[in-house]
Nucleic acid binder design. Structure first.
Lengths: 192, 192, 192, 192
DNA sequence: ACCAGCGGGACATCCCGTTTGT
DNA sequence: ACAAACGGGATGTCCCGCTGGT
């Protein structure tokens, strides 16, 4: 096999790194395959050696971003208890996440973008979302399973909503206020 | 001029009706000016008599949808008390809103779409969002202003987040579960 | 109708002028639509307002070149007699035709190129070729119709062959020799 | 080394056989190296062990086809006299040559294709063409050298032209007529 | 020698926003 | 208000040249 088996894998990783970042930050339509490959240090001709089409790389990028986001990394290291969840909330509902973290959480950054894509994209999104709620449930180790699950889902919605809205807003002050309120209210929900 | 001023106004309304619906449901890029005008019963050439460019009609459509959405209509009729807010939550966080209401709330349906547009679009979104939080605050007539405002913002984030995520998900069951959890948890926040 | 009806026609003419020249000189594959439109002073986007596809413009260019070639112009002005035909031979079987005339005769310059194209291209070529033989027959106003027709076709083959071969050759001396021999032999055939 | 030198030579021959046929019938651009190698029963990777690039194999194929064409074979067996030339004309200017013979004469089938290639290709074509005219001159053993040479070149032009045009035409009837006229007129030239 | 396949560039076609003139 | 023409950009495909293992 030519180019050593790792070579291809490395190229693929580079493309996915670029894809995670660019798609999350700009959305599906605003990123051309040219943009993608240039960012990855390759050219368009090589793209189709790795992915069947643009939708393909988009779905892969969603999964890839979920795994490789700094936020997710932190999640994986934490112990499962409400205190860890609180610190996770601080990271997630932060302006750093909104403006600087790369790649950011695609659940928040692509929530609307996904709605109009093909079923395979939405299935991927659904899977990733369910994984996130499972995580939150784990952290929220309450006795009452029903309450726990209910709170976990609402919490997740607030987290994703808070970050997504912040991304859309034009007024930095409102953003900080919104994130702060979400953090505080979320923590109150943890105590319940 | 063969056309009366009202005629022009009517045309504009028709275009905005179409724009509210189409943009909210499909996003900015997936709606061409042709789609828009065909849906409005006109031809593409006439578009630039009413709007300066596509971004212009998009911002107008956001405002227009906010005013004309059935959800907003309900909001306007209600008395300002937590009970009304609860019923508003039921409408907003419903699968009807996610799948059928036209136009749906652009704050939820375009939250990601707006993030990558020009400043004027984001300013419009910011304004509409602030209006919505003001409404929620009004309904939530608590003594403690700080608590009230904090809860209002978090509540809004959860509402928008819940609906936006539902739009993206592929699994109807998860959607119903998510909406239910958001509704219940939101109402708990009202009681606090 | 916008842009005045002539505008479109002018654009079309410009494209066909470029197409006649470029296709004849370089062949089908070596001319991209970009090349074509750049040469015509337009951009690629406008191409499909005028032609359905590349094959379409190619067939049109063949007809267009046949009509607009300086050689054809001369043909049209001449009186129908062997003397005129002799002078036509001098023009056709000349190095000027091989190297400089624009557009040159597509029958000679595209003879091989056409063989591998779609039927519609070959039909056009066939039509143009038959027209040319008809012309030669007219010039060759002999009594004996059979002899006339026979000689006309062979003459045409020699003309086209001579020019086409000259185009392929790399040695200018051989080209001049070949053209001279064709001219002389052709004229002998006229006398017969 | 596991492969004998003959093996390599055989592979090369197989490739050239395929190349002669495919290039002559389809032209340079319409034959990919993949097509070539698949036809020869090898894969593309092996190609560069035998030829430096596509142009290289193209030039070699022209020479190869000239030597291996059934028409050329016949030429080589014949005695040098006008009668043999007449029979050669019948073979060359036949619909069998146009449609079935493999490989056909590249001088006719590639006449236009060569004109737009690199100098090395055109040099090869020029060489092969000159060889053919020499052959015709030999067959045409007249006293008057000037007349002989002149007729030989014109004859060659007519032969190549007749076949090349036939290849381009879409109408079988016209083809038969054209070939017949060329044959007859050519033979008249022999008598002179 | 042969093979599998990666990287790169180019191309046809399509689609859409905008402008122009009627 | 309309129709059409223009300009730009993006996608998927194809193919050449080359690389490195077998």
């Amino acid at each position: 096999m030519p180019y050593t088996p790792q070579h291809k894998q490395q190229s693929r990783e580079r493309i996915l790194d670029s894809a995670s970042r660019l798609f999350s930050r700009r959305g599906y339509d605003a990123v051309s395959i040219d943009d993608l490959m240039t960012d990855a240090g390759l050219t368009r001709g090589a793209f189709y050696n790795h992915f069947s089409d643009k939708t393909d790389v988009y779905t892969e990028a969603i999964t890839h971003a979920t795994i490789n986001s700094p936020i997710a990394q932190q999640k994986l290291c934490a112990t499962y208890d409400p205190a860890s969840l609180a610190s996770l909330l601080d990271s997630y509902l932060s302006s750093a996440h909104v403006y600087d973290v790369d790649p950011p959480c695609p659940l928040a950054f692509l929530v609307t973008d996904v709605g109009v894509r093909e079923p395979r994209v939405r299935s991927t999104y659904t899977r990733v979302f369910c994984n996130m709620t499972k995580f939150v449930k784990k952290f929220l180790n309450w006795k009452d399973r029903n309450k726990r699950d209910e709170t976990a889902l609402a919490l997740t919605a607030m987290m994703i909503g808070g970050v997504a809205i912040s991304r859309a807003l034009n007024d930095r002050e409102v953003v900080e206020e919104l994130l702060k309120c979400c953090r505080r209210t979320a923590k109150k929900l943890l105590e319940k």
